[in-house]
Amino acid sequence: MRARRLTLSAPFAAALLSVAMPGRAQTGGPSISAAGVTYLVEQRMRYVGTIHEQSGTWFGGEAQARLGRVTLRVSGVMGKLTGDTSVTNPDRDVRVSSISLGIRPALWLEVGADVAARRVASPASTVVTRLFGGHVALALALGVDGLSGNATAVYYPATDVTGDERLALAAYSELGLSYAPPRGAIVLRLAYRVERYDFSGSALGPARLEQVKAVVAGLGMRLGR
């Protein structure tokens, strides 16, 4: 089964790499950009055999500085997840902040380290999760200067949880596009993001699974190339 998956995905990978030309914003000199972002979020959580769903809108900002092959990013978003107001599915306030440092071995490829902190507060409890991991990102030029398709995968092998059981798995993936007109300072971003957090079970309770899906839209300004 795995071999078949690989066989099917190989042509796609080849196609991606064949157009893996850098977007214009990736090829120039030092640049700095900042953007406001909006997350349209749906969260799904399974606990003791029941699946709870919540939704909400998060707002925040991202900033990025690029010097040569090195890129530093910081971001922070916050918002509310609204459930069905029951005791088992209360509303939650969420704050997520992250920082990542990436390096580009090729103009279309970036690898790097990520640190994130996630705080989820409800009337019953407050869970703070600190995540340490790395990422791989691709940037594929889509024919027009400044237009590129982006794919990012982040995996956090090391986690630290306060207020809940430890995390057995934490990762997220994001696909989308960005557009930075060569003669302008505007940066547009649209992406679809899936986050996954699997909390381990313990003597006090069973395992809990969380999944966050979000449409991410961003609009910002950029200085430099």
């Binding site: 796609f12 196609a15 594929l140 794919a151 999944q211």
Partner: peptide, 24 residues
């Protein structure tokens, strides 16, 4: 470029099943 766009689009559609939890 077209192929890349289609690949990214398809990837977006299947990402939830690939990355997300099958139990959910």
């Amino acid at each position: 470029v077209l192929l890349a766009g289609v690949a990214l689009g398809a990837g977006t559609l299947v990402m939830e099943r690939v990355v997300g939890s099958s139990a959910l």
